[in-house]
Design a protein around this nucleic acid. Structure first.
Length: 265
DNA sequence: ATGCCAGGTAACACCTGA
């Protein structure tokens, strides 16, 4: 790095819906998009089964917190990963692999989040989601207090507003739109975090997920549920953000597409 | 009210997802 020159770090989050099934798509996207840091969700495999060599060959360091069949998160970085913490605090009895954080480029703390879906309402899944969000809130509150540059990225499984879904009425009974879910998501922002995408794009009906069923992608029947939440120090460094819809249109696509931002530090 | 599609596991059916 030359003296006095700022460095741009491109950060992305992507729920890949099985990293093994998605490997060709992931490799092609890493080569073309050239992100510096990637938070992956739903890798759906144990750590030993993660396709480490293929991704390392593209210049990434890797930390995984996997689980058999379900969930599983990972962080890829072109820098070394330091101080890797594979779980959210206060998770006694919670064996879901839904969280991992690490420091990248020696100065940016990033987290990969796979927040519980919470459906169907009326089961234990919804209170589990809300309790998980409460734990995330407590952790992100501490993240504000220490003043570090942080980006909490992932699949939040919350549709924040009615114009973040193609048909709000159809989702009225869904865990992703419940007032309890939305209030907890807003509470994260009220701590002082900036939703990177919304800092640059306020248009309604911009999506990061399209169901496999009923031609949702072709009809643009989507949901906006994947976010990069930036601490004030990271938000001050934001220079760009967006949604890369390219991967969703490929063969054998994940139902989610990458959301990205760029910080200049 | 439910399945639609996709992935994983395990077994040729079922669970989970959002």
């Amino acid at each position: 790095m030359a003296y006095g020159v700022y460095v741009k770090i491109k950060v992305a989050t992507w729920n890949v819906n099985s990293v093994k099934a998605r490997l060709p798509n992931v490799l092609a996207w890493l080569k073309s998009f050239q992100p510096d840091v990637v938070m992956l969700q739903e890798i759906k495999c144990v750590d030993e089964a993660f396709p480490r060599l293929e991704i390392e060959d593209l210049g990434y360091n890797i930390a995984t917190h996997g689980q058999k069949t379900y969930n599983g998160v990972a962080i890829l970085s072109k820098s070394p990963l330091e101080d890797v913490e594979p779980r959210l605090p206060d998770g006694e009895g919670d064996d879901h692999a839904r969280y991992m954080e690490a420091t990248v480029f020696g100065k940016l703390r990033v987290a990969s989040i796979y927040l519980p879906n919470g459906n169907p309402l009326g089961t234990e899944k919804f209170p589990y989601k809300l309790a998980w969000m409460d734990r995330l809130y407590a952790h992100m509150k501490r993240g504000i207090e220490d003043g570090e540059m942080r980006i909490y990225g992932g699949d939040y499984n919350v549709i924040p507003n009615d114009d973040d879904v193609y048909n709000a009425a159809a989702f009225a009974g869904d865990a992703l739109t419940q007032p309890e879910s939305r209030a907890r998501f807003r509470a994260l922002l009220h701590l002082g975090y900036t939703n990177a995408f919304r800092a640059f794009d306020q248009r309604p009906h911009q999506y990061s997920y399209w169901d496999y069923q009923a031609g949702a992608w072709q009809k643009d029947n989507g949901l906006l549920i994947d976010f990069l939440l930036c601490s004030p120090q990271a938000a001050d460094a934001l220079v760009a953000a967006g949604i890369d819809k390219g991967p969703r249109g490929q063969e054998k696509a994940s139902d989610h597409t990458p959301v990205w931002c760029e910080v200049e530090v």
